[in-house]
Design a protein around this nucleic acid. Structure first.
Lengths: 131, 131, 131, 131
DNA sequence: GTGGTCTAGACCACG
DNA sequence: GTGGTCTAGACCACC
């Protein structure tokens, strides 16, 4: 389980954890059905309080991404809810437009944007599970 | 002034504002020496408390990005540090990770993510620049 | 705000609170848009920890029943999500069948069942807000 | 043996089991002297751990509702306290409140609740008794 | 003042 | 051992 928390970023630790978990799951770095580390273990590893991790697990469970089995462990859900293709598209468009606007201001050429973006996405999805 | 706050993201509003201001300045979307909207105006526009904006301006002033002239207004500093290639990369990475994480609950496959992203970027770049 | 907690029932306090809040909102005893007591106040009133109430408020917010305004207060949502009439019907049927089975075992006549049920429902919906 | 557990209700499984057993006995759905399913069987049926059922049986034995004969089986006690009219009323109230609470997130108006309930009850009573 | 997060430690429910 | 709840108190974000 690889996590990188930034305690001084102003972003609550719990939010950082849920984000990174969502990311890891979405990217398939944690496969469906796989067991997550025990909340107390992950807390120790991240030097965070047990409850902070617990809350994160709980939220992702309510989102349907995780499946908690009492007394057994926490697992990545086998199947997850679907969203409208249309809405997904809108979401992506919004992110891309925002990013392009920023990069344009930084004098990055369209050609480089495309290159940068695909490179990062590929890396992000491929990043191996580090112990 | 283009801002996009997410009140329910768990990230404090003040943090979101400073982040976006910092980026807008670094990206040159707000040019050096230009006047920023009055804190009260921006607060109204963002549906945020005046003090929250005021504090954000204050922090950026201490960072040297803004120059607050009492009784006159707030301006972007004349000398703004430029963003390095390395930071650009980090910026892209951050956006991509965020996007992938968002697509998490939606269960878009990595393959589809890549497809969607390239499509949107291509379209976005093909559109004539507005400004 | 009238609440009746049973600490020794085995049912977690937080669950009891969310249940009763849902009940009060559904019954219209707390009207849409109305302010709820501050989490800390309700906690004091119920002799419960602040966090227990907070969690309850948080869950109901995620369900869309409450609307939390940071630094301002917690309110009953103005409008709430709808469910399929068909599913509602199934839910009601399930409850009723169960209840009827129990009452039948207790030798309550069908006539009395109908009477009891309507009486209780009427009372439940009409119960005035007690301080 | 008819049981309906709600694993995600927040109410401990053991509590749900004792409650339903108590009710089934009081309502006469399980007659005095009758044998209960072996703890292991019931556990399997409910997809619950053996110890959870075992503990539930144990508690009801201490209450005098059950009679556990080691190596033989578990039976409903011969002398089971009868439910009073007062308790019947409480039972109905509990069911009704629960139902109303459930209909909360569904935003069924009080008027519709009353209508639905009477309709379902009437239909349910009109159906020929099975058993 | 009101909501929100984090820490810390005890104890219970479940397997 | 693993998940879940409750308590308690400090501190931050926002109005």
């Amino acid at each position: 389980m690889y996590f990188q928390l930034e305690p001084n970023s102003g972003v609550p630790l719990g939010v950082q954890i849920t984000r990174q978990l969502r990311l890891a799951i979405a990217a398939g770095r944690i496969t469906p059905g796989a067991a997550l580390p025990a909340a107390r273990d992950l807390a120790a590893e991240l030097h965070v309080n047990f409850h902070t991790v617990r809350k994160a697990y709980g939220e992702l469970e309510q989102e349907g991404l995780l499946c908690v089995k009492r007394g057994v462990g926490t697992y990545v859900a086998d199947q997850v809810p679907q969203m409208e293709a249309h809405d997904v598209r809108a979401l992506v468009r919004q992110h891309v437009e925002r990013l392009v606007a920023d990069l344009a201001g930084l004098h990055v050429s369209p050609r480089d944007m495309l290159r940068l973006l695909t490179e990062e996405l590929t890396q992000c999805l491929a990043r191996p599970e580090e112990e």
